[in-house]
Amino acid sequence: MEGGEPKIRLTAVNLTKKFDRKIIFENISFELSAGSSLAITGKNGSGKSTLIKTLANVIEKSSGEINFYSDGSEVKKEHYYKHIGFVSPYLNLYDEFTGYENLKIISNIRGINGDNINNVLKKVGLYDRRGDLLKIYSSGMKQRLKIAFSILHNPLILLLDEPTSNLDSEGVRIVDEIANDYKKDRILIIATNDENEKSLCESEVNLDRGD
């Protein structure tokens, strides 16, 4: 990196999340910079999805710190959404709109132009079905659209929670390709128990072990 300072840096220090008195995960710490990737693993209910949502700033942490730096300056929490791409089983898009319209709406909300929409739809293999309403999409097609949603704004950090669920082999190959592309010069985090998804990442945080 130029001047020894990584262009992108994400640090978590003693991150803890509790729901009432129940501890979901405790004292999780790691540091990632551009070109690194992390797998968050652990058995069902260990808090993988909660941790990845906490990193995306869609739920509040109970204690600890998350710091995100871009070009040497700290990104404000309320602006994380500009730099984070997120795929999750809990994420749903709008059934009453077509695949293209969904991405157009999100582009408008993000305040970016929609020039990238067709490229992204081609990348996830949905270009030919872009005019179909989401309510007639299969679960695999919806998953592909979620992946398109996550990379639409060219984020600096890509957070993927079980990204290949419901996908066929072609879909899995697309996710692998996107993940490999992101971990070259940005940050990739995958919450998973799938061996193939785990193998895409260079480091691992196992929530069962608490490391």
Binding site: A56, L91, Y94, I109
Partner: peptide, 11 residues
């Protein structure tokens, strides 16, 4: 409909 997450991640 579970779409609030999409809005949270976009604005």
């Amino acid at each position: 409909r579970g779409t609030s997450l999409a809005i949270k991640l976009s604005a």
